[in-house]
Simulated assay, not measured.
Amino acid sequence: MSGDLPLNINIKEARWDQGTFMGRAQHFFMVTDPRNVLLSSKVLEDARVTVENYRLGIVKPGLTEDQLWRAKYIYDSAFHPDTGEKMLLVGRMSAQVPMNMTITGCMLTFYRTTPAVVFWQWVNQSFNAIVNYTNRSGDAAITMNQLGAAYVSATTGAVVTALGLKSLTKHLPAIMGRFVPFAAVAAANCINIPFMRQRELKCGIPVTDAEGKRLGESSKAAQQAIVQVVVSRIGMAVPAMAIPPVIMNALEKKAFMKRFPVLNAPVQVGLVGFCLVFATPLCCALFPQKSSMNVSSLEPELQESIRQSNPSITTVYFNKGL
């Protein structure tokens, strides 16, 4: 059964050229669109059915190409690319802006006291743990013990870093204290992401040929994927945690803000949100989602296996995660 829409549209790939930064940016502006968080279960299920049916050659009568691509991006925003499972709502990339703007805004607002630093770093790492698990690469399971160890390690690292830097900035200009949350978040990302994805480092992630045929699992590919994600996440935090502190440091000296200090948190959250709307997709676009590496860079045994079964293949591909 088929409709008027041709069956040769490759919705396994993005709509825009992923070989260019601009193409990847357009793709991630769609994937991270915060409005997708508000979509109902019915809309998500309809998108899933539309996408999966199209892949089977079944086209709903009257379906247009724009509607198909819209369904594909709704599907991508809510379902894991490797497992096909519906992702936790707060862990989806479409929830990054509303969740991060709230948490980051509060971290930047309430940074002066030790209890506030500990609490908001804990909240942030709890959220990051969910995001990192939800957007992991591959389809291998991770145990509760591994999840617990990653969560405790990342949270401890973030809190220790934040408190250590906070004590060092006591005798420095006040503006320096505002950047402590960013340093703590950057350090925690270097801990949290590898720990939450340690299963990939131990067992590898699926690598495929250009057509998507699975060739094996590679820990080397996992290492490259995790490094790329760490860089992207730190880059994502730079505008949101570096620009608002400078603006707020100036605003808090104004008579209006002194008169209405209750506006401090809402203004800071708003500034962070504005930065994140652009920083989130642009930093996700730093590296291709379908990353690649030379066969010669893989583990020796996997190289040998690929050369024996597919001697013409020189490059393999894998989902780097987000």
Rank of each mutant, 00 (worst) to 15 (best):
L68G: 14
A184R: 01
L56N: 15
L286V: 14
C190A: 15
N192E: 02
I313R: 02
V207L: 09
I142C: 05
C190H: 05
A47Y: 11
R259L: 14
F28N: 01
H27V: 06
M176A: 15
L38N: 12
V160W: 06
A150Y: 03
G235R: 03
C106E: 02
Q223W: 02
D139P: 09
A242E: 04
M176D: 04
M107L: 15
C203N: 09
E211R: 13
D33A: 14
N249H: 15
Y54C: 10
N264T: 15
Q268V: 09
F318S: 05
G3E: 12
I313Q: 06
F119H: 02
K320C: 05
G105N: 00
I205N: 05
E45R: 14
V159A: 03
L286E: 03
F278W: 15
R214S: 13
R197G: 03
N264D: 13
P266I: 02
R24P: 10
T50W: 08
T134C: 11
D76P: 06
A183K: 02
N145A: 13
C283I: 04
A242Q: 07
Q228H: 06
R197K: 04
S292H: 14
M236C: 15
H27D: 05
V51D: 06
N135R: 08
I175K: 08
S305T: 04
Y317N: 04
S309P: 08
Q26Y: 07
L322C: 08
G164Y: 00
T113C: 07
F21D: 07
A14Q: 08
N189S: 07
D82W: 06
L147K: 12
F29W: 13
G23A: 13
W122C: 05
M144E: 12
P61V: 11
N132M: 02
G23C: 07
Q146M: 08
F110M: 07
E299W: 12
